[in-house]
Design a protein around this nucleic acid. Structure first.
Lengths: 247, 247
DNA sequence: GAGTGGTCTAGACCACAAT
DNA sequence: TTGTGGTCTAGACCACTCG
């Protein structure tokens, strides 16, 4: 069952990405869209709101909405799953588990996962590749209550996210990501095949379930040049923030 | 004139950041909020929607909304203006113009600013400091039609953004930001007081006016450790995307 | 002044979660 | 089964932009 507002959003998105409404062009008015689609204006506004939060269009009171970008944005699951992202971009993802160890949560891990210090966690270190070339060294710390499910995932499983979804119905719904840069250490140098001290892009993440329960936290270190991240902002919906060095 | 939905959003935000509704807690139901505030449910949903897009709460059909994070997010102007951001965080921003030159747009600049190759642009290189310590080397390319206004801004002006707003009524409304890492070159090493080849965090940005007209593009290179960026995502509103190395 | 998007109301039905 | 959020309608008024 597809929602009415989603159909309209999809249609407008298609018209934008296909170039029918190029960057800088004005969209039809909301009353007009409502008429042509046979819906109430509120439904049109839901669709328009979706495109605004994707950064595709901008709107101001009194003037028609304007196309800001014609690049479609990714789905949340593509952002979270390295494999899904790679496949969607026509790349060939690979990877291997370097280590998998149970341990006790550090204070920082405990605070990220809403646990108490010393609770059991599962730490996994993975190397990710694109077309065989190393791209990303990924450290993940899973909350203890899902350690069993994660350990049942085979080491050579391409998409852990997909596997957890299929096996135990676990889905990721929210994420918080912090991005900075740091120098490669000995471990990163060896696995990512770069020189020690060379620049890496680091993404620290914490992911939670639909109920708001933290599921995993970790940090991903990317070999530069292979991957970048983009964010679209506007005065109304501003998802990104800048932080000082003290975390 | 403050809008009703914004008052409600502010109130809920305050209750969340103050800890009255801690992370993991459930909010009152929408009908209840509508009753207690004496408004229609639609108005409450506007307020709730704002908190969702800020990543403060998450919602699912059938269950009450849940607090995901108690950290308030920044305003858009704080993200765009180095000085405003620094002041809001209790730091002491400074800076100086290293060079300011008019030139002709490169193909890349032209495409970012919706100009044609060879159109006039103004390029400015600035060093930004916090408490006197160098933090950021900022390259900005302004579209020619606003070069005069920018050149009238004194070199030692603390906030260019603020000055442009006050002088010519120019406001920034949308931004696109790409983040990656790279090694410091000779220029960055000298001004940021780091070793050549050491890691830097790079943010490439393009900013547009409320009408959707591109105003400036540029790239900011941060000394690592001093600054990081965070993004909150969810399955519905997903502002961040991961990109391959080909820009 | 005509048209636009922003705000708000007062209903209604549905799909889903919790119990 | 009860209550919740998600969707949708059919109006209305206002602040604003634009020609």
């Amino acid at each position: 069952m597809t929602r009415r507002h989603q159909q309209i959003a999809d249609e407008l998105r298609e018209l934008i990405t296909s170039g029918h409404y190029p960057v800088g062009a004005a969209l039809p008015s909301e009353p007009e869209l409502a008429r042509t689609h046979g819906v109430a204006r509120g439904t049109v506004r839901q669709a328009v709101g979706a495109l605004i939060s994707e950064g595709l269009i901008g709107s101001r009171q009194g003037a028609r909405s304007v196309v800001l970008s014609s690049t479609p944005s990714q789905s949340f699951s593509e952002l979270l799953s390295f494999s899904q992202w790679a496949r969607a971009n026509g790349r060939d993802p690979g990877g291997s588990v370097i280590s998998s160890l149970r341990g006790r949560a550090t204070p920082e891990e405990a605070s990220q996962l809403l646990l108490t210090e010393g609770d059991e966690v599962l730490r996994i270190l993975r190397l990710r590749t694109l077309s065989g070339a190393p791209v990303l060294l990924e450290r993940t710390c899973y909350a203890g209550w899902m350690a069993d499910a994660v350990e049942r995932v085979p080491d050579d499983c391409e998409s852990v996210t997909q596997r957890l979804h299929d096996d135990v119905g676990l889905v990721f719904a929210h994420g918080e990501h912090r991005i900075d840069a740091l120098a490669a250490g000995t471990l990163e140098a060896r696995h990512l095949e770069v020189r020690r001290g060379s620049p890496l892009l680091r993404l620290c993440r914490t992911t939670t379930s639909p109920e708001g329960r933290p599921v995993e936290t970790g940090d991903d270190r990317y070999r530069p040049g292979s991957v970048s991240f983009t964010v679209r902002n506007s005065a109304l919906t501003n998802p990104m923030s800048r932080n000082t060095g003290r975390h």
